[in-house]
Design a protein around this nucleic acid. Structure first.
Lengths: 222, 222
DNA sequence: TGTCATTGGAAACAATTGTTTGAATATGCC
DNA sequence: GGCATATTCAAACAATTGTTTCCAATGACA
């Protein structure tokens, strides 16, 4: 019989699933500890508080992600040896990095749900934590995107990147619900890789869309 | 001195703001009633339960929205008199309907935040309620989109519509945070209308993106 | 004016929350 | 073995939650 993982791991494994399913506020420590078969006090003993547990759940995904993503960007920059990295390659690399990390634990869905929650749930401490802890890798990425899309005004690129962030997080974090509808309506089962395949041309087209009409000039300015 | 709106209205006005700011579970009835200056029991008296209050908050936005959106689609169909309505016109109409409704209460932000929460928060009852109560108008809209984009496979259109739903909800519901960043980085203040202007070409380009590569064939199928 | 249904309000309810305590147990090290 | 440290455990804690109860105030209608 396989040995049970230690208490800390059991808590994290259970917590991430419950958090992803129902959100942070809706998941009680008793929920977690009873399902993980550990004592209630174990959470506060090992993590200190519920907040700290939430951050630890994120760290277990984001730490390996940032390491890999940085490494992949290093490779990419080496490959292109100073030349501009095309947008498609950047997006491809990001997608690969996102897909790789949770593959070890077979829980991309959880990963994406957590990202979605980090944005939508109140939990101000979480956004701050993520920004401070993992902001640098995103800064690096957006700078590379800037070089790849020199014709885009800075503000326009900023917004389009966030548009696409919304697309991806929204879709993948609500995947279960959407998959149910899609399966009912079109019969076909949709895998995550399938979805990423469908996302690629959409994201590229969105980033390369023509510029919007200039904002209308105020009346008083003639 | 202007007469205070009645209890029911005060509760709804306060609840929608607090819900939008912090989510449903994180907003207690005491939070709402104290800020609205009504008695705690008033919520259960007038609405029956917290769940019912949440649904009532949504109904106050979605009821007028569906009415207007149906009406706008009626006009549009009349204008085109049986001919196919182009995608741009459909998107334009939808955007206009969304913008019109909360303009009365000057709270598009709240409307969008609520929509975002409806998707991301657990609250299974909410999704079910919205689907049952307001599903028909979306069915009508997607059917018109189908006619406007005959070259798209059904599944592909389904997914792209949800991609764009994600873009819009994610962007507009996280608007405050994003606006802060954008203003800090680019100095310019961004209005909602500005954002809609920027969204238009992106959404159109995304819907018209080339089809993805066909999904790779499984090994055993030669 | 008196009656009755509606609304407002203070208090209490039972349940659940995150956290802490202090003793019991296990573990590692000399 | 024996000590010290680390972990587990049951119990209790104080705070907060949604909901209910019971009574007072209100206002419409006869």
């Amino acid at each position: 019989m396989a040995q049970q993982p230690d208490t800390v791991t059991r808590i994290l494994d259970t917590a991430e699933v419950l958090f992803a399913e129902r959100g942070f506020a809706e998941t009680s420590l008793r929920n977690i500890t009873s399902k993980a078969k550990v004592n209630l006090a174990a959470v506060n003993y090992h993590f200190g508080s519920k907040k700290a547990l939430i951050q630890a759940v994120f760290a277990r995904y984001l730490d390996p992600f940032t390491v890999r993503f940085h490494a992949s960007l290093d490779e990419l920059e080496a490959d292109y040896a100073g030349r501009v990295i095309p947008l498609e390659a950047l997006l491809e690399t990001m997608a690969r990095s996102v897909l790789e990390v949770p593959a070890e634990r077979n829980s991309l869905k959880v990963f994406m749900r957590l990202l979605g929650l980090a944005y939508s749930q109140a939990q101000g401490h979480l956004r701050r934590y993520i920004q401070e802890e993992y902001g640098s890798v995103f800064t690096r990425f957006t700078e590379l995107v800037r070089l790849a899309t020199p014709e885009l005004p800075d503000a326009e690129r900023f917004w389009r990147l966030h548009f696409m962030l919304g697309t991806v997080i929204f879709t993948l974090s609500g995947l279960d619900a959407l998959r149910d509808i899609a399966e009912k309506d079109y019969g076909e089962h949709v895998s995550v890789r399938d979805l990423v395949r469908r996302l690629r041309p959409v994201v590229v087209a969105a980033m390369n869309a023509p510029l919007p009409d200039p904002s209308p000039v105020r009346r008083e300015a003639s």
